[in-house]
Design a protein around this nucleic acid. Structure first.
Length: 417
RNA sequence: CGGGGCGUAGUGUAACGGCUAACAUGCUUGAUUUGGGAUCAAGUGACUCCGGGUUCGAAUCCCGGCGCCCCGACCA
């Protein structure tokens, strides 16, 4: 993409109503636009990062046998009444509205109920199971207090997968497989080393649920971390006897963290009230064993922005960066322009995503903006580089600069196509 | 929902109850520049969040509303 066509602007200063680092950086760099408290629009660069993160998640979910669907945001009240989760006293974060005829509807804050109903329509026999189905969709939660930029909003993108198993054993195998996929996701997007598999309160069908918590000072949760074992325990259950029995808490140290994913066993909590059953090998009707697995895609983007940045801007990992290469043309010289243009064409032809800064601005401004945007590789074409028949390649993360011939550069960048 | 703070050009800040609401940045035009948000000049841009009130006079004080941020509570 040519930067002259990118309509977003960068700003030197963040709006004063943003305190959180993720929102400050993402707004300054032109990735997001604040619509209102806790509600952010995605600008072109933001869309690209969000899609990339979603695709990382999608690939892993497909890899463990997940099948993608897309349920509705508008919710039928009657489905939620079956599990008693329609009442405001039960769920206080519903956004509710009415149809013209007076029928009440809600905007989905999660999808266990409609998902279970949808699956019940499809499942009859043990031969139909297990099923892993997921969606990547916008959720709506009427939070009393939105905070921390895009980390806790009222409207946000989330991946939610639901597993439907015949037996507890089968469920547990799936659960473990998804936990591994989750860790790979966090590794891939660049926060794996700071993300801990965290024991949290389980609910009625299991001793624990598990959260994936990423360490950060701006986190709203406190977890107790065991560095060597790479596990943690959420503060909320730290005083429970079962926890004290299972873990030697002396080895755990408290840290601030943000929950980027969670997985939990639902047992038959939803399948029973919503009549999701199957006929087993003996001809008996059995309730389906369920699990639920969430990842906040938008929150993940926020945490990456926050953790992988420095004092001049964002630093995207190559896996989710909006573009792999930021090609910067310096000066208005015709020879420079045509060289940059041909390099741009060649990189794009090799399948590399490129943001090509074809504008006539001062070098300083272009560099400062490039640093702020955080694209992994910056390639400069200028009179200087042209004179030596090379390009300049800078790694945004390490800051290392090298000179490389055009063909070698294309070959190198092609690795990231 | 309890507590605290704040609303002034696009953005960031200033302005004792008193002059035409200032400065920086952005944007426009021109010139000089072209390897770190460059320099100079001339422009542009504000019903001071909204509605009431006090006062000779309100960005400034008072009341109400709306919005935003922070702390807490809440958070399958």
């Amino acid at each position: 993409m040519r930067q002259s066509k990118l309509f977003t602007k960068t700003q030197k200063e963040a709006p004063k109503d943003e305190v959180s680092k993720n929102a400050q950086l993402l707004i300054r760099a032109g990735y997001i636009h604040k619509e209102m408290a806790g509600v952010y629009a995605l600008l072109p660069l933001g869309v690209r990062v969000m899609n990339n993160i979603a695709n990382v998640v999608r690939n892993e979910m497909n890899g463990v046998g997940g099948v993608e669907v897309s349920l509705t945001a508008l919710q039928d009240k009657s489905v939620w009444e079956k599990t008693d989760r329609w009442r405001d006293e039960a769920i206080d974060i519903w956004f509710k509205s009415k149809l013209k005829n007076g029928t009440e509807v809600g905007l989905g804050f999660t999808h266990e109920e409609p998902f279970t109903e949808m699956i019940a329509e499809q499942v009859n026999s043990y031969r139909d199971l297990p099923i892993l189905a997921y969606q990547i969709q916008t959720k709506f939660r009427n939070e009393l207090r939105a905070k921390s930029g895009i980390m806790r909003g009222r409207e946000f993108l989330m991946k939610d997968l639901y597993s439907f198993s015949r037996t507890q054993k089968e469920h547990e195998e799936i659960y473990a497989k998804i936990a591994e996929a989750y860790q790979r996701i966090f590794d891939t997007v660049g926060v794996g080393d700071k993300t801990y598999y965290t024991y949290a309160s389980g609910g009625s069908f299991s001793k624990f649920s598990h959260e994936f918590q990423t360490l950060t000072e701006s986190g709203e949760d406190t977890i107790y971390v065991h560095e060597e074992e790479k596990i943690a325990v959420n503060e909320e259950i730290i005083n429970e006897p079962s926890v004290r029995n299972q873990f030697n808490l002396e080895d755990f140290i408290p840290q601030k963290a943000v929950e980027v994913g969670n997985i939990f066993s639902l047992g038959t909590k939803f399948s029973e009230p919503l009549n999701l059953t199957y006929t087993d090998e003996s001809g008996n009707s059995q309730p389906v064993i369920m699990g639920s697995y969430g990842i906040g895609i938008g929150r993940l983007m926020g945490i990456v922005a926050e953790l992988l940045s420095d004092d001049v801007g964002l630093i995207w990992p190559i896996t989710i960066a909006p573009f792999k290469v930021h090609l910067v043309q310096l000066g208005d010289d015709d020879s420079v322009k045509s060289e940059a243009e041909s390099l741009y064409q060649a990189l794009v032809a090799s399948g590399v995503t490129v943001l090509y800064d074809d504008r006539s601005l001062s070098a300083g401004e272009k560099f400062a903006e490039s640093d702020l945007l955080g694209i992994p590789f910056r390639v400069v074409v200028s009179k200087k580089t042209l004179a030596d028949a090379v390009c300049e390649l800078k790694d945004r993360k390490t800051g290392s600069v090298s000179r490389i011939e055009k063909d070698a550069l294309i070959k190198e960048m092609k690795k990231y196509a």
